[in-house]
Amino acid sequence: MGADSGPGIPAAVPWRKVLYERQPFPDNYVDSRFLEELRRNIRVRQYRYWSVVRETGLIAQQVSWVAIFLTLWYYMEQGALVPSAVLLVSMGCALLGYGLYEILGGAGVRERTRLADLQSAAIFLAFTFGFSPVLKTLTESVSTDTVYAMSAVMLLAHLVSFPYAQPSPPGSLSLNAALFGSVCLASRLPGALHTFTMLSCALLEFALWPCLLHRIREKAKWSFPWAAGLVCLGGVGGVGSLWPEGAVLLSMALLILTLLCPLLLVHLQRHKDNIHGPWDEAEIREDLSHFLN
């Protein structure tokens, strides 16, 4: 800077930071005001540890749901669960969930009418029931390893692409990947009714539960950690009933996800060094108020 502001420059004309005017200064000249507008870390938020932990519950419960789904599928394939019973239970759960959803919704303006909901439900059930024989024979000639690999990839894709910031309605790619994976798995089950049951369960877990959870988070904030914890417990318990070591691994993974990762985030936040200035592009600011202390 010092080298640029050489002697012999008339101080009468002040230097302006514009290119469209011819000024009596060299091209690379800047004066002492050059970095006045530099700002550091203006948008870095200091997260509070427990609020971050609370938010990671969403991820943990989604992982747990996949675990629960796989457990359910394993029991169905072994024949330990009667499909009609599972179907009845899941129907009951669905009705319960719907009731809860309606209650939590309160008397506000409804986006969808009850008739539209009923229509959707009818479409789900009719298509799944109609296609279940086809789906049953769909992957008959494909080897089991291929089917497992495909479902694993698809469920992973579901977890990766799930819109954790805005879980209702679930994103297209995540829902589709989950459904594709569950169709692959369901086609390995012994009967058409098994397939139907499995797909209904998948629909409940991956399509409808995120909507309910979102509403719970909005309207009854206190109950969200409990709900997430419950789901995590269910997932660990389910895996534990099949494979205890797996349950230990899953619970460790969940603990790391919910406790260690937020600690890391909060800790690393101190090392952040962002510079801002008038050269920045315009930025759209998200509403991150609920992360603030």
Partner: peptide, 12 residues
């Protein structure tokens, strides 16, 4: 949701 569901079913 129902569009996505039927679409994925048919896609599979």
């Amino acid at each position: 949701l129902d569009q996505l569901f039927i679409g994925t079913l048919l896609f599979t």
